[in-house]
Write a protein that binds this DNA or RNA. Sequence first.
DNA 1: TAAAAAATTTAGGTGAGACTAAATTTTTCC
DNA 2: GGAAAAATTTAGTCTCACCTAAATTTTTTA
Lengths: 249, 249
Amino acid sequence: MTEAVGLSASLEDYLEAIYNIIKEKSAVRAKDIAAKLQVSNASVTGALKALAKRDFLNYAPYDVITLTPKGEKLAREIVRRHQVLKDFFVKVLAIDEDEANKTACKLEHGISPEIINRLVQFIEFIDVCPLGGDKLIEGFKRHLECGVDSNNCEHCLDMARGLVAASNQAHKVQKKTLVKLKAGARGLIRGIRTKGPLKKRLSEMGLTPGSVVEVERVAPMGDPIEVKVRGYHLSLRKEDAEKIEVEVR
Amino acid sequence: MTEAVGLSASLEDYLEAIYNIIKEKSAVRAKDIAAKLQVSNASVTGALKALAKRDFLNYAPYDVITLTPKGEKLAREIVRRHQVLKDFFVKVLAIDEDEANKTACKLEHGISPEIINRLVQFIEFIDVCPLGGDKLIEGFKRHLECGVDSNNCEHCLDMARGLVAASNQAHKVQKKTLVKLKAGARGLIRGIRTKGPLKKRLSEMGLTPGSVVEVERVAPMGDPIEVKVRGYHLSLRKEDAEKIEVEVR
DNA sequence: TAAAAAATTTAGGTGAGACTAAATTTTTCC
DNA sequence: GGAAAAATTTAGTCTCACCTAAATTTTTTA
C-alpha cells in the first residue's frame, strides 16, 4: 500500500497550469489547460481525474475545477521552483526570458528543495556580497558580449588569463605545449599546431584557441593526459597534447 | 517522415550508462547497465534494440555492444551536461557530491546547449573575475554555514542588510512595516507582529525574520501587495502586510 | 425556449518504458 | 566435452500519458 510518492512530471505540469490560470482569470476551463499545455481536451479530462483521485483538486464531470488546500500548496511549490530557475537563468546567466521559461518548465520537476533553496541563497548572495553584486553580473554580461570566438577578444583573453593564473605558481607569461602542464594546472589555448582531420577532431572536442584547459590527471608515462575543456572531460594522447599550444603564468 | 527528434530521457540514460561503463571497464554487459540504472535485465534489452535501431549503437542479440560514432558523440554530450551541472552544484552551490550527481541525472535531459554553455562560462567567470574568484564562493559557503535560521547570525543579517541597501535610496537604517515599502524596494524582515494561525500562515509562505522581502507591485489602494520572498511570489492583504516589520535603509 | 454552437467527457487506441516468468544462449568448471 | 551456472533474450503484461472520434452536457443565441 505505498501511495503518495509525489506526482509525475506530467501531472505537476497540469497542476501548475491550473494554478496559473486561476491566478490570471480566476476560472479554470479545461480548454485553457489544454491550450496552455498543448494537449488535447480529452487528455485534460484524464489528468483532472487523476489529480482529483489523489485529492489535489475538486472535480466532478462538467463541474467547476478548484484546487484543494493540498493541491494549492503543491502548486505553489512547483511555481516557485519554476520561478527560481527562471530567475537564475535570466538574472545570473543572462538568458533571454523565453528560453529561460522553456527550460525552467523542463527542469522544474525533480529538482530537490535543497538545491532550489541554495539557488535562492546564491542569487541573493550574488546580489549583496561585497565581492559580488550587480557589478559581478554586469561584468559577466559584458564578458558574454564578446561572443563565442573569445580568441579575438582581448577582454575575454584577459579573463581567461586570470583563470589560468589562479591555478599556477609562476607569474611570468609563458608559452608551452599542453604536455608540459602538471595535474591541476590550467592553460589558455593559443594555437593548435596541426591541421586536417586531427585538428578538426580536437576542435570538435572543444580544444580551440581562446578556451581554458585544465589538466586533471596525467598517467604514469605521461600518456594519456586527462583534461577538462568547456565542461568536457577528455583523454588525450601525449602526441596530440604536444600539438596544443597553451599560455600559462 | 519526421525522425531524429532526439532521444527520450530514458534512452539518454542508457546511452550515458553505456558510455560510462565502457570508460570504466571497456566491456559493456547488459547486467551492468541494469545495475547502474536500477532496471531489470529485460528492460535493458529493449533499450538496446531501440538505440541500435536509431544507429546509436552496434548490437545484435548475444553479441558485444559498442557505440557507433553517432552514439559516442551524443553520449559525450550527455556526460558533459551531467558534468557541468554537477560542477555547478558542487563548486558554486556547495551541494554535496551525492546529491549533486542525483540531481544532475534528473536535469541533464532537456537542458539546452545554450544554457549549458552559459553555465560553463559562468563557472569560469566566477573563478576568474576580479570581483569574484574563490573569495566569492568561499564567502558564499561561509554564508551557508550560518544555517537556515539566518535571524540569529549577524553575518547573514549583514548580508541581508546589504541586499536591502542595494535597492533603496536612504542610507539610514529604519524600521517600518511592509506596507510602507514602495514597489521595487526590499526589506529585511525583523519581526511578525501577530500570532496564532495568521503567524503560522505567513511563516509557511516564507515570511520569517531574517529573510529578505521584495515588493513587486502595489495595487491602487495599497491592497493587495505583491511580494517575493525566498522565491515565492505572494499576494498579501494590506492588513497582513501591516503585521510585518521590516528594516530598510 | 428550443435549436445551434461550444465545451467537455467517454470510448477505444497507440506507443514508450517498465515489469515477471520462461526460454535460449553463452560461459564456467569439473 | 558436457552439465551447471550465469547472462541474455523473448513473450506477455501493466501503467502512463497521450491521441481521435463520437457522445453528452452546458451555454449561447435567434
